[in-house]
């Protein structure tokens, strides 16, 4: 080998092997994330099967328009992060910084809408706990349970997004310092995988929480 790239760690034969190791490691981590969220989806499924009418009632109390718009916003942020990886692959530093910035913008917009929804739920007394109130004909206990799942699942999803936003901001700093080029952009690609995974979690959360019964 004539020249060894500066980013190549000593335990790897070449850059390609190093990149494959990083990708495999990332997917192994994402498998643990699938199971982390999967446990909550399983619990959700059991209780929804137990209390179908009440959960349908409770689901109708979520704002369908805000939920739909937010899903579109998050899908757009997935597009921009994919475009950031594309820009890195083609060696466009400007493209990386621009698309990562757009991703932060859309991610922050999603969290803003989510915060508004939480605030609205607080005012409607739909936050589980001492202040919970339920004025429908259906029983209040199962409804409170629905909102417990709603807040825990969307809360963990939002926490993942906050972490993602931090990593994206760090990536922008690194990109501006010229740390990436067409040969080495693994951190951009791995962050992309993480961000897409968070998007996938929402793709399932949205219909299961907002769309139980809208007929």
């Amino acid at each position: 080998m004539s020249t060894t790239p500066t980013h190549l760690a000593p335990q790897f034969d070449d850059a390609e092997q190093q990149q494959l190791a990083a990708t495999l490691g990332m997917w192994a981590f994402l498998a643990t994330e699938v199971l982390f969220f999967g446990g909550m989806f399983a619990g959700y499924g059991v209780y929804r099967a137990w209390y179908p009418p009440t959960w349908a009632d409770a689901s109708r109390h979520l704002d369908l328009l805000l939920g739909t718009v937010n899903t579109a916003v998050l899908l757009t942020s997935s597009l921009t992060v994919a475009l950031a990886v594309h820009a890195a692959q083609t060696g466009s530093r400007k493209g990386v910084v621009r698309n990562l910035s757009l991703t932060i913008l859309f991610g922050a917009a999603f969290l803003g809408v989510k915060a508004y929804e939480y605030w609205h739920k607080w005012h409607e007394h739909h936050v589980p706990g001492a202040t919970f109130e339920w004025h429908e004909a259906s029983p209040s206990g199962p409804a409170e349970l629905f909102f417990s799942f709603y807040f825990v699942m969307t809360g963990f999803h939002a926490l993942h997004m906050v972490i993602g936003l931090g990593i994206l901001a760090w990536l922008i700093v690194q990109a501006r310092r010229d740390r990436f080029d067409a040969e080495y952009y693994t951190p951009v690609e791995m962050t992309g995988l993480y961000w897409h995974f968070v998007d996938i979690v929402w793709v399932f959360l949205f219909p299961l929480l907002y769309l139980i019964d809208r007929t």
Partner: peptide
């Protein structure tokens, strides 16, 4: 190998479900 890893998590999840 990456494709196998990407499916693995969902396979375990399918077992749970």
């Amino acid at each position: 190998l990456v494709q196998v890893f990407s499916v693995a998590g969902f396979v375990w999840l399918a077992l749970l479900f």
